[in-house]
């Protein structure tokens, strides 16, 4: 069964993300899960959100393993500082992460300060989704139908130009 977010859920999360961007003066943020799926994002359009999500999830899970080796229960957040841009990743819940990208004109303290409440708000929304019994059935698009694709879904570019 797929994990599904309805329009209202995504709107709620986007609202939280927009507030976080304004308050923390960061440039972009996204919510992703540990599988690398992007649940929502704001301001990350210019980069590849899928890639940031895949790498962010990897970095965070690796940090958890480091924490375990050091005898810590877990690292609740990870911060990578660059010359111009930095990235802050914190856990929303066991499976979901909040990734914040900010320039060095913003302060990591400010990002950390506002990321906590934002993560709490997102956790609340995801909790609502989780406990909602008929998540999918509320959506009118519940039935999924395959597109008719003659042959394979993907073809070699050279073949495509030959009309195959």
């Amino acid at each position: 069964m797929a994990f599904a977010l309805g329009k209202n859920d995504v709107n709620k999360i986007n609202r939280v993300l927009r507030e976080l961007l304004d308050q923390s003066e960061s440039t972009g943020c996204l919510v992703c899960d540990h599988s690398g799926y992007v649940l929502a994002q704001q301001g990350v359009d210019t980069q590849d959100p899928l890639l940031i999500s895949a790498l962010g999830a990897g970095v965070f899970t690796a940090s958890r393993e480091l924490a375990r080796i050091l005898g810590e229960d877990k690292f609740s957040a990870v911060f990578h500082q660059g010359e111009k841009k930095s990235i802050f990743i914190c856990a929303v819940n066991q499976d979901v992460l909040l990734v914040v990208i900010f320039t060095n004109e913003a302060s990591v303290g400010l990002v950390r300060l506002y990321a906590g409440p934002a993560a709490d708000a997102i956790r609340g929304t995801l909790e609502e989704v989780r406990t909602r019994i008929d998540t999918m059935q509320e959506a009118p698009e519940y039935t999924f139908v395959l597109n008719d694709s003659k042959g394979g879904l993907f073809s070699k570019n050279t073949d495509a130009t030959k009309g195959q």
Binding site: M1, F3, A4, G6, S35, Y37, A139
Partner: peptide, 15 residues
């Protein structure tokens, strides 16, 4: 586990 985003009408699958 796949993910469906009804807001962006997007399905994400991992292989």
């Amino acid at each position: 586990m796949s993910f469906v985003n009804y807001a962006t009408r997007e399905i994400q699958l991992k292989i």
